[in-house]
Design a protein around this nucleic acid. Structure first.
Lengths: 345, 345
DNA sequence: GTGTATATTGCAAACGTTTGCGGAATATAT
DNA sequence: ATATATTCCGCAAACGTTTGCAATATACAC
C-alpha cells in the first residue's frame, strides 16, 4: 500500500514517450497532437495522476501557501479571524499553515523562520504580547516575503495592517449608554500599558466629554477579568447606588459585574445598564443578554488576506502599504436597556 | 529586497568549491577537512544560510508537515484539540496545515486532496457531519499517508482513533447528581440520530438504572440549544416541581434551563441541581457556576498526534491500529450542590 | 526530385538538495 | 624507489516538474 504516487515519469515510461510530452499534453500545449493528448490524458485520469506540489513549488518558487502566526487559537476572536482568512485563501487557491506562539517571543521567532524555510508566499501575523524585538519580522521582508499584521500590529515596521478601532468601539458603547439615559457611567478598565486598555478608556472618556458629562477617576475600576471583578465587589457595591451605567472593557467582566450587582439586589438593566466589549460568544448566554460591541474578526481576517494577496500577486506596489481599520459594531441586547424590567419570555 | 535566498550553490560559487562539499561541510561529514568545514560554516553563518525546505522535502519525500482537517475552528473543543496537536507536533519538529471544512463534504474532499498533493507526512481528521462517502479517506491511505481520526471518527475505516467517551461522561454526570441526593432527574437531550445524542442519553439511563431509579421518557426533553430550551420553557416549568436534578446534553442548554427556572422562582442548586456537558468556556460564567463534564480536547489532540507520529516514523506496524478513549472528567462547581443556597461571595 | 514550411516530439537544463562513487593528492609502509 | 592506505574533494544522478531549443517527421509547393 505504501506505493509512491504516480509521476509524470511513470506515465512517460508506460506510454513510451518522454516526460516533456506528457507534461505538455496534460496542459493542452498546442505543440502536442490531439492523439497523444488523448492518450496521455485518459491514462493519467485512469491512474489518478496528481502533480507533486513540492516539485511544482521548487521549480516555480511559488508554494500557494501562506503562514498565519497568532498568539492563541483558542481565543474566539482569533479563530474567527482565521475563518475569515481561510475563506478568502481557499477561494484563491492558497493553503494556510497556522502557527501558535502561545504569547511566546521565542516561539514566534522559530515559527517565522519555519515559514520562511518553507518558502510560503506570504505571512499574516498578530504579535505575541511580549515581542519587543523585530528583527525576525525584518528577516521575513528581507527574504522577499510579503507580511501583513492584524490586530496586534507592529508599529515599528512599515507593512499593511488591519486593526479594530478600540477607541471608537468604546466610544460607541459609552455613547449608547448615554443615549439610553445614563448619566453616571462606571468603567471597568484593563491595564493602561496595554493598547486595548488605553484606547478603550480614551474612547469612554471621549464619549463622556462630547456629552458634557464629567470624567471621574473614581468611576474607573481596574479589573479586566472575572476574578478581578469579584475581588473588587465591595468597590462596585459602594459605587452602585450612585451610578446608572457600566461600560466594561470586555464581556466576561461585564457579565461578572452584572452578577455581583444582581446578587446585591440591583436590577439589570432597570437600575443599572451594562455594555461589554466583544471577545467571545458569551454575550448571548448572559442573564440578561449582554449588549456589546463586536469586533469583526471574520472581516478583519478577510481584509488581511486580501491585502496579502495584493502583495503576493503584485497587483499593488512593493512599498505601498495600507492600514485598514474596522470599527466594532454595537450589538444591542437587553443589558443596556436602562429602566426596563427584564424577565425571560 | 526581493533577492532570492542564499543557496548551497551560491556558497559553493563564492568559496570556489563544489556544492557537495558545502553540503557535507554543513553537516559535519567526516570526509571534509576541518579547515574547509570552518570556512563553509562561518561563511554560511555570515550570510544567514537556511536550507530550502522544499528541496529537502522533494529529495527525501518527507515534509515534516502534517494536515489537520476539522469542521470548524471556532468551536472551542476543536481549537483546544488543535492546541494539543500543535504542541506535540512542535516538539517533534512538525508543522501543521489546518483545513476547515465548514461541515461541507465537498470541501473535505478537496482539502484532503490538497494535503495529499502537498505530500504531508500524515493527516488528522475529524469528519464533517454530512460525510457518508469514504473514498477520499481511502485515497489518503492508498497514497501511503497515515491517517488518524479524532472525535468524529469513521467507523468504516480501520485506522487509529481518538474519541471522547460520551456514554461514560453522561453516566458520570448523572451519577454525580444521584450522589448529591437527586432522585428524579430530567435530561435535556440532543437528536438521537447524532452519536452524541444517543450516547449521552444511554449514559444517563445507565446511571439511573445502576441506582435503581426509574427511567421515565417524560423526563426527557428534546432540546439541545439555548433557543430550544426557551421554546420549551413551559414544559420545563410544568415538570420543575417534581424534579430535583437536570442533566443537560451541553452547557448552553444547561445554562438556559437554569435561567428559565430561576426566572420562575426556583433556586439553583437549592431546589434543583444542574449538570452540563462541556463544550466551551461558558461554565464559569454561568450563575451559579456550572458543574459539567469536560471533554479533554487538549489531551485528545496530543494523543492523536502521538498516534500519528507512531505511524509516520513507523515505530508501530503499518496495519496495527489503536483506539484511544478519553473519559470526560467531572468538574464540580456550584450548580450541582443540591440543597445549597447559593450566593456569590 | 529538391526545398521549405509545419507539425510533433525529445533532450537537457533548471529549481536546491543529498550521496554513492571515483579520483587526486598526500601520507605511510616496505 | 614502489606499493598501499588515507584524506579530502568533485562528478553526476536523483527527487518531479517545466520549458527553450533542437531534431525528426510529415506535408506542401515547385
Amino acid at each position: 500500500m505504501k506505493s509512491h504516487p504516480i509521476t509524470i515519469k511513470d506515465i512517460a515510461r508506460v506510454l513510451g514517450i518522454s516526460p516533456s510530452t506528457v507534461s505538455r499534453a496534460l496542459k493542452d500545449h498546442p505543440d502536442i497532437s490531439p492523439k497523444t493528448k488523448n492518450l496521455v490524458k485518459t491514462f493519467a485520469e485512469k491512474v489518478n495522476y496528481r502533480p507533486n506540489a513540492l516539485a511544482l513549488s521548487l521549480r516555480s518558487s511559488k508554494t500557494n501557501t501562506i503562514g498565519i502566526v497568532i498568539p492563541e487559537i483558542v481565543h474566539h476572536f482569533f479563530s474567527t479571524v482565521i475563518s475569515g482568512i481561510e475563506d478568502v485563501a481557499y477561494g484563491r487557491g492558497y493553503n494556510a499553515i497556522i502557527c501558535q506562539t502561545n504569547e511566546n517571543y521565542q516561539r514566534e521567532v522559530i515559527d517565522l523562520q519555519a515559514l520562511i524555510d518553507n518558502r510560503v508566499d506570504g505571512i499574516l501575523v498578530s504579535m505575541s504580547k511580549n515581542t519587543h524585538e523585530f528583527t525576525h519580522f525584518n528577516n521575513v521582508k528581507e527574504n522577499g516575503i510579503p507580511i501583513v499584521f492584524f490586530d496586534r500590529i507592529c508599529e515599528a515596521l512599515s507593512t499593511d495592517r488591519v486593526i479594530a478601532d478600540d477607541f471608537e468601539g468604546a466610544r460607541i458603547a459609552t455613547r449608547h449608554l448615554i443615549n439610553q439615559g445614563c448619566k453616571k457611567i462606571m468603567h471597568l478598565a484593563a491595564p493602561q500599558h496595554l493598547l486595548i486598555g488605553k484606547n478603550r478608556k480614551e474612547g469612554y472618556y471621549s464619549a463622556l466629554k462630547e456629552s458634557k458629562l464629567e470624567c471621574e477617576e473614581r468611576l474607573i475600576l481596574k479589573c479586566d477579568t472575572r476574578e478581578a471583578v469579584f475581588a473588587k465587589a465591595d468597590d462596585v457595591i459602594r459605587l452602585a447606588s450612585e451610578i446608572d451605567g457600566i461600560f466594561a472593557v470586555n464581556d466576561s467582566t461585564a457579565i461578572a459585574v452584572m452578577q455581583v450587582l444582581q446578587r446585591n439586589g440591583y436590577k439589570i438593566p432597570k437600575d443599572i445598564a451594562v455594555v461589554g466589549f466583544g471577545d467571545g460568544p458569551n454575550a448571548n448566554i448572559a442573564y440578561p443578554p449582554l449588549t456589546t460591541v463586536e469586533q469583526k474578526g471574520y472581516d478583519i481576517g478577510q481584509a488581511a488576506m486580501r491585502l496579502l494577496i495584493g502583495h503576493i500577486e503584485e497587483t499593488v506596489e512593493d512599498d505601498e502599504f495600507e492600514t485598514k481599520i474596522f470599527t466594532p459594531e454595537l450589538v444591542e441586547r437587553t443589558s443596556s436597556q436602562y429602566g426596563i424590567d427584564f424577565t425571560y419570555k
